[in-house]
């Protein structure tokens, strides 16, 4: 009888110990799995931030390089061209005294070529560094961009915004929006065979939206996503947006053509706002 009691106690203790172990095992698996997920998430976040930083640095370097080229063009080639123009003017006076028509014609042609080159250099410098954007803001920069495009192409480009006075945003955000707009419009001109482009800018307390719509041949956004057909331009847009936590949506309007909508959260403007960038000042850009 005593043996029976001992057996019962032994069984009870052994079973309870086994059950405790089972409970501990289940709890451990739950806890450990949760902890590993948290660690994995942390590592992913660090990787993501690191990639973002890399991308940011790359884009900053690109802007710095653009600025350096613009500066060199203006300071070196621009100055030399101006001096060439002055020299040609002096030479022109000498040639006109001789009164040789043929020499006079060659002189006029040379002067005209130099003037044209000076204009080209100015245009390239402005394209490289959007000074209007930095001095006057996004709306003015877009308007200037549209004016230039309409001069060179047989295109109708319209621009409208939901506000009269578009509030100034951080330098990085404005530049991102401007570059995206540039890329989308250039894409529409290059690939969509369109005759009309519509740019709209919407701003509220939380988001800034930029929509570029064209009436061209259009494309299937799903196919591009599925087949990884996005070219460097679209990838560049995605990269720029990822730095400012923005999103991109491509749509196919029922009326035809295509529409791209970029949305970026409004970021607080830093208190020590940097001075407007000047294309002709040699400095590193920190956007």
């Amino acid at each position: 009888m005593q043996n029976s009691e001992e057996l019962k106690w032994a069984l009870l203790i052994a079973s309870l110990a086994m059950l405790t172990m089972a409970f501990c095992m289940i709890s451990f698996v739950m806890y450990y799995q949760k902890r590993r997920f948290e660690e994995e998430k942390k590592i992913n976040d660090i990787e993501k931030n690191y990639n973002r930083l890399l991308l940011d640095t790359a884009l900053n370097s690109e802007e710095t390089e653009r600025r350096r080229i613009a500066q060199d063009l203006h300071d070196d080639i621009g100055t030399m061209l101006s001096l060439t123009k002055l020299s040609l003017n002096q030479l022109n006076k000498l040639v006109s005294k001789i009164g040789d028509d043929k020499q006079d014609l060659i002189m006029k042609k040379s002067q005209s070529l130099v003037e044209e080159t000076i204009l080209h250099v100015r245009r390239i410098t402005r394209d490289l560094v959007p000074t209007t954007l930095e001095r006057f803001g996004l709306m003015e920069a877009i308007e200037e961009f549209i004016n230039k495009l309409e001069e060179d192409n047989n295109l109708v480009i319209s621009f409208h915004s939901n506000t009269e006075e578009f509030p100034r945003q951080g330098q990085k955000l404005e530049l991102t929006l401007y570059r995206i707009m540039q890329e989308l419009v250039n894409n529409a001109i290059k690939h969509a065979s369109c005759s009309k482009i519509d740019i709209s800018l919407e701003v509220d307390d939380q988001f800034i939206g930029l929509r570029v719509t064209d009436n061209g041949v259009g494309f299937d956004p799903e196919k591009i996503k599925e087949n990884n057909l996005a070219g460097l331009g679209l990838l560049g847009i995605e990269s720029r947006l990822s730095i400012v936590n923005g999103t991109m949506q491509y749509e196919r309007p029922s009326s035809g053509g295509s529409s791209a909508f970029a949305q970026i959260p409004v970021m607080p403007i830093p208190e020590n706002k940097p001075e407007p960038l000047h294309p002709f000042r040699r400095e590193r850009v920190n956007i």
Binding site: L19, A22, I26
Partner: peptide, 26 residues
Amino acid sequence: IPNLLTFPFFWVCSGLLLYFSSLIFI
């Protein structure tokens, strides 16, 4: 599996683990 508490088979495993742990010595 991001959340074990909503993963059906985890509950099945837990049930079996407890049941066989209770039975193994008896």
